[in-house]
Design a binder for these strands. Structure first.
Lengths: 213, 213, 213, 213
DNA sequence: TATGAATGAGTTTTCATTCAT
DNA sequence: CATGAATGAAAACTCATTCAT
């Protein structure tokens, strides 16, 4: 009943604490693999426990319930994703480069750890219309944060002249994000023919964003 | 074992004959509503039967198993979708107009019957890596047919000069499709802020596709 | 509710009647094949109907319920079996020959139509402790008739001196019948190694029955 | 997928440890009663759970699936049966006595715990023609082990002169085993008249096996 | 006489979750 | 901290049987 969130053994210095953290991490690792491979619904907590090498009770001790694992993973994947984008953005020469850098980075992450990204384009564990789940809230929050990063880059581009000034925000940001999400879905769910179209994504965006003339 | 596909009571000409068709249709109607609202996995066949006003057995009589319902719905939505695109394509003045027409049409359909389209961006009933399900096969087949339509329009645009000639196919087609899929996901799963960015989609594509100069 | 037994279209001369008989026979034929192959419980009436090429309703029209088919088949197989034994008995030179003839005949029938005989050694559709089923009644009745035939032969043997006079009846008859039933079960259910031990059955019985000296 | 076999709670030394074993045992006890009384197919797992006084989930926790219970029971009954035969064999004065001892022992076991033995002559859970079930494999394996014991006794009898030397092996062994199986079936399924023919079984075999003269 | 659409009670099985230890 | 035995509610699916035609 009581939601057990973020149960981390306080004081990571203690040997027992470190072991707990190890167990927690093992569950996360097992879950991300299985959720990505078979989907959230098709994966049982028993399966996760087995692959993680822990008892079933351990999962509920650390994550409260099954959705808790997903919640945890979603938060992590979003965080990592966003942080990488932000650092890519910082290094970019201008706004356009920043946006295109984000696009390239996205597909690099898809290639590097498809498991994590698959979580984002696979099935959702809850109703889209209802706000009752923490899971949906996390997705929405993180989603808007990522959108902000993109819009930041776009605005910078419009200011430094590398991006067409008449493109509306956040609409344009949403469209780029749409393209990334959709492409990832086609790629990871193997719904597209065997063509490396993701390499063309940056160029496609460059044309769409470039100022006229 | 034996797959019960397309079990339709003898031709709908007779007034009584439509009865069976009615039940079948009621199940489809109930399923599309519930699958879109709660997802495929979160919807039980009992729930579908209740909403459809038929017995649970009737579902299995007509569709063989739960996936059979989804299969049926997916085939329909894909078919309708593609046919509309094809007719939009036929009416277009040039290739670029055809592509943009497809984009607009897509969002029009999303607005008109969000339930059906939601099926395409919501959860998948099976592992993405495996080909064992008819459902995945249908999605893949239909997906490639839709891609073909888009590429046809693009090629026509490249021939009549309305689309940049150096854009590679089918990569560019896949990117447009990605944008549509991703946008639909953001929209229907309410992951985007309340902004009508879909109206900008055609313009975004126009810029990306337009020949230089 | 109402038991429909022996519903045969009266007057087999009528063309309609002949057709009904055809359907009835088709069901019986299909059922004996499937029951023997998969067992009574593992065979659905739908399967029987499909193999027989009739509608499911037809089965219930002719046999009342599923057990009705088995009832019908059991009665037939027992009847045939007994009739053959009786005619073998009539032709035998003496009692011992009659018994051994029955033994040989039994295995000949097993070899000739294993499907029918399999019904007798496979699973029973009902509780052995209760008498509530017609099925069990039929089995018991027919069983005792067959036993009678065997005992008749044995008694004749004891009278003509070919069978040991001190062997008790019907015990000895039951033992021979046991041997036949058990051997059939081992054979048809493939629980015995690939040895043609049934050829030795008559010799085994001959020794057991032979008068001393 | 993963077969849960032999899930036994850690060693029965601890008083608490026997608890799990208790539940397991309760299921076995309930199952053997119901399977013998009504047959495997006619018994639902719910019925077994109810009689055992455990939840239905417990059955699947311990036995994996319904067939798992039967498997377990079959293995046990076969093992016990064979062990008793072997010890009877060891005590016998000569080969003939050993064989007849086995025969007597068989019927003694039938009388002592008819439930367990009934499992062996009642219905089979699967097609006889197919090897796909563990259940059938167990039956076949154990069956051949029991046959070996019988043949051992027969061979010993042929060597010590108490059994006719010209009787072929393993055919003769199979015939004796047939007689035992068939008799058990007649007895336990109450298909024979109320006659204690099993008392005659040893004498019947003695005559069949005795050396001439 | 024959059909087959429709059913609902029943089946096996799964699984997230609890809790005593 | 961690376990894993035990559960019960619910899931998908089956199937003998009915009945209007």
């Amino acid at each position: 009943m009581a939601r057990i969130s973020d149960k981390t053994p306080r004081g990571g210095a203690k040997p027992g604490g470190a072991q707990g953290s190890t167990r927690r991490q093992a569950v996360r690792e097992a879950a991300v693999t299985l959720f990505a491979r078979q989907g959230y619904h098709a994966t049982s907590t028993a399966e996760v426990a087995r692959l993680a090498g822990v008892s079933e009770g351990t999962i509920f001790y650390y994550f409260g319930n099954k959705e808790g694992i997903l919640l945890d993973l979603l938060a992590e994947v979003h965080l990592k994703y966003r942080q990488r984008m932000e650092s890519a953005l910082a290094k970019a020469a201008n706004g356009m480069q920043a946006v295109l850098g984000c696009v390239d980075l996205h597909f690099k992450q898809v290639r590097q750890d498809s498991r994590l990204l698959t979580l984002l384009v696979r099935d959702l564990p809850v109703s889209p219309g209802r706000n009752d789940s923490q899971c949906r809230q996390v997705m929405r929050e993180q989603s808007s944060l990522i959108l902000e990063v993109l819009c930041l880059a776009l605005r910078r581009g419009q200011e430094d002249g590398s991006v067409a000034a008449d493109l509306p925000l956040p609409e344009t940001g949403l469209l780029i994000r749409s393209l990334l999400i959709g492409a990832t879905r086609l790629l990871l769910l193997k719904l597209a023919p065997e063509v490396n179209f993701e390499d063309q994504a940056a160029e496609f965006c460059r044309r769409a964003l470039a100022p006229p003339g």
